[in-house]
């Protein structure tokens, strides 16, 4: 079985997720076993205090893959840009 090449993705943060992270974006390499948005959130929460703070209540953080809204169960395969943000409040 050929080895799967590791997937590098751009993460973007908005509103209070960005403030709690202390940065607006970063590039990460997805570890093995992280295949969905909720698995990514679960892994990010173990990466440091700022991640823990930003994703303390994962149910209130929304996600978009390549600028399209997605559910927590959405697969990350092929994703280039993954954004995390609170529920939107425009209009």
């Amino acid at each position: 079985m050929p080895e799967t090449p590791s997937q590098s993705v751009q993460l973007r943060y908005f509103a209070w997720v960005r403030e709690k992270m202390g940065r607006a974006e970063e590039t990460v390499t997805l570890p093995d076993g992280v295949a969905t948005v909720s698995e990514l959130v679960g892994w990010l929460r173990t990466q440091g205090p700022e991640y823990e703070a930003a994703f303390a209540r994962p149910e209130v953080v929304r996600a978009a893959i390549d600028q399209t809204h997605v559910k927590p169960t959405a697969p990350l395969a092929g994703a280039r840009e993954i954004a995390f943000f609170p529920p939107v409040t425009g209009g």
């Binding site: 908005f14 939107v88 409040t89 425009g90 209009g91």
Partner: peptide, 10 residues
């Protein structure tokens, strides 16, 4: 727009 467009008010 109010539930889908990615805007956030502070």
């Amino acid at each position: 727009l109010k539930t889908r467009a990615p805007f956030w008010k502070k």
